[in-house]
Nucleic acid binder design. Structure first.
Lengths: 151, 151
DNA sequence: AAAATTTATTATGCGTGCATAATAAATTAT
DNA sequence: ATAATTTATTATGCACGCATAATAAATTTT
C-alpha cells in the first residue's frame, strides 16, 4: 500500500467502506446513502431539507433522488415549511426511526472498531492529511494556480 | 473535521479528489476513470485486460463500460490475446498515449502537492490507518464476526 | 412597488463502481 | 476423452453523487 498513490489509497479505501456499508444496509433492505440520510434527520422534529446536504457533505441536488425513494419506501414524509414557501421539512416515520437506529449502530460499530486498531496519533494524522487535501482542493492550490493568483 | 466520523472524512475527501480529477480531465475531454485506466495500460506493449482490474483496485466487470467508451473514443484498441482465446490485449493508440501523458501529470501533480504539505510521519500514519481499515473489512472483523469464527 | 437576483427544490442525464447473468475458452477432475 | 469447473470478458441494471436546467418563492435593488 505504501507504494500506491495517495488518491489510490483514498479511493480504494473508500470503495471498500462503501461496499461494506451497502452490504450491511442491504440486510435491512436499505442502502448506505439512505442510512446516512436517516442519521442526519432529527429523530423527533422536522429537519429542513436545506440542512441535509451540508450535514452529509454533499450537494443539495444529489439528495433529490435519495429523498424521493426514501419517501416512497415510507421512511420519511416531506411537509411544507411554514416559515419558507420554497422549503420542505423532513419528518421521520416510525419505520424511518427504526431504520435510523440500525444505521446508527452500523456507523458506530465501524468507527469504534477502527479506533480500537489505531493509535490516537495515527488517527489524528489521518484526519490532518485529509484536511490538507480538502483545503488544497478548495483553495485551488493544486490546479488553477494562475487563476488563483490573478484574483 | 476532527469531530466527524472516519467514514465521513474518507468519503468527503475522496469525493473532493474525484471532483477535482474530473474537472481537470474534462478540460481534455476525458474523465477521471479513463485517465486512471490509461495510466495502467503499458505505453508500448499490449496489456492483458485481466491485469487492469487489480492494478486499478476495482472489479474486472467495472471496466467493461469504461474500456468500451475508450475504444469508441479512439484511445485504445482491443486485440485478441494469442495466448488465451478468452483474453484481450489492450493497446494504446497514439491518441491514447497523448492523453495518458496528461493523466500522468495530473496524478503526479496532485500527489506531489499533497506530499509537500504534510510530514513524512503524517503521511505514513495516513497510509497505516487506510491499511487497517482495508484489513478489518477484508477480514470481516467489523461485521459478520460469527461467520468468521465458524470457519 | 416592480424588476432583478438569490435561494430551495426537483427532475434528469452522465460517470463510476458494484452485482448478476450470459457466453466462450481454458483448465481440472473423472 | 468427456464432463465439470474455473476464468476472461461483456452487457446490463442499480445506487450514488455531480452538473445542469427548470420552477417557484424569497430577498435585494432600483
Amino acid at each position: 500500500m505504501k507504494d500506491k498513490t495517495i488518491d489510490y489509497v483514498l479511493r480504494t479505501t473508500w470503495l471498500a467502506v462503501q461496499k461494506m456499508y451497502n452490504e450491511e444496509a442491504s440486510k435491512f433492505e436499505s442502502t448506505m446513502a439512505t442510512g446516512f440520510a436517516l442519521l442526519n434527520i432529527d429523530k423527533d422534529n422536522g429537519t429542513p431539507s436545506t440542512s441535509l446536504g451540508p450535514k452529509m457533505g454533499m450537494e443539495a441536488t444529489s439528495l433529490s433522488r435519495i429523498l424521493k425513494s426514501m419517501e416512497e419506501r415510507g421512511l420519511i414524509e416531506r411537509k411544507p415549511n411554514p416559515d419558507d414557501g420554497r422549503g420542505v421539512l423532513i419528518h421521520l416515520t416510525p419505520f424511518g426511526r427504526e431504520k435510523r437506529e440500525y444505521s446508527r449502530e452500523r456507523v458506530l460499530r465501524f468507527n469504534e472498531t477502527v479506533r480500537k486498531e489505531v493509535s490516537e496519533e495515527q488517527l489524528e494524522h489521518f484526519y490532518e492529511v485529509a484536511e490538507v487535501i480538502n483545503e488544497l482542493i478548495s483553495n485551488k492550490k493544486i490546479y488553477n494556480q494562475k487563476e488563483r493568483i490573478n484574483k
